[in-house]
Write a protein that binds this DNA or RNA. Structure first.
Lengths: 146, 146
DNA sequence: GTGGTCATGTCAACTGGTTGACACGTGAAC
DNA sequence: GTTCACGTGTCAACCAGTTGACATGACCAC
């Protein structure tokens, strides 16, 4: 394990993602990245491809390619409204809403459990979260410099 | 910005990586992921494809495909020793060693600068690093459960 | 109406990963 | 010697992103 915090961050994220993916596949039959898409969609529904892409931090093309498989798997429905150009409106199915309502809190709880481990004494997740958010904000303010 | 720490982590990493990549491209003519490979190699040199892959957290096939471009760019040399089967030995060129020696500390310093921002009062990077490392360790011990 | 301009979605080509199969050298067993 | 197992690297096929070009539909100006 490196002493550089950027490496530690990557390692932590990799662990978290791998665990979440494993749980989601085993218990809910959905991949990690699919779940993220559904969870974001649940917060933003109904929305379109462009907005979802923005929320997920990927391009519209990437979302455009993923939508068919989500529809086929029964998580998402698409429709288009007259008078809105090519806009594709995305909505969750009832199944997907249920999934998000169940799996989301389960993952949250599981992560919160981490800090009940004796080794994690003195770690306050909300303080940690705030510090990480502050660093993110500072980096963003500095712009793509310098 | 979400209240979920996993999201915050992804956002922070994305910012950090983008900044590092930008600096490395502009100042040193190397991409972020290339630099990571060189930096790891500098710590591990001389080594082979399998070991480098392990250190980078990717498969041997991925490294095998990236090596030719590193050689062509003049960062890496390859050779093979008699009596070592197909083993490909990787070493940095002098240029690459110089690059790592210069760019590495620059990036470190730039990141350390973050916490001198007034908003970051009370953030101690080494404490933060240790906390993140603890969480990583706990996740790894729990295995791929549960 | 006709012709820009804009937002939106999709396509083709590319990149950098993955997996699973396989080729290659080495060394040990027989 | 031949065979077998093993460590190592590479290949083909696939996957999920990206970019840049382009099609489509709506709207505005004229």
């Amino acid at each position: 394990m490196s002493d550089k915090i950027t490496f530690t961050l990557h390692e932590l994220i990799a662990e978290i993602d791998a665990h979440a993916d494993h749980i989601l596949r085993a218990r809910y039959g959905v991949t990690g990245s699919q779940f993220i898409a559904l969870a974001v969609l649940a917060d933003e529904e109904p929305t379109d491809i462009t907005t979802l892409a923005h929320c997920l931090g990927v391009t519209k093309a990437a979302v455009s390619k993923r939508v068919p498989s989500l529809v086929e798997a029964g998580w998402v429905t698409t429709r288009s409204e007259p008078g809105q150009g090519r806009r594709v409106i995305l909505e969750l199915t009832a199944t997907a809403r249920e999934l998000v309502a169940k799996a989301g809190p389960e993952l949250d709880a599981r992560f919160a459990d981490l800090v009940s481990h004796p080794d994690a004494a003195g770690i306050d997740l909300s303080v940690l979260n705030e510090q990480l958010a502050v660093l993110t904000r500072i980096l963003r303010q500095n712009g793509p410099l310098s």
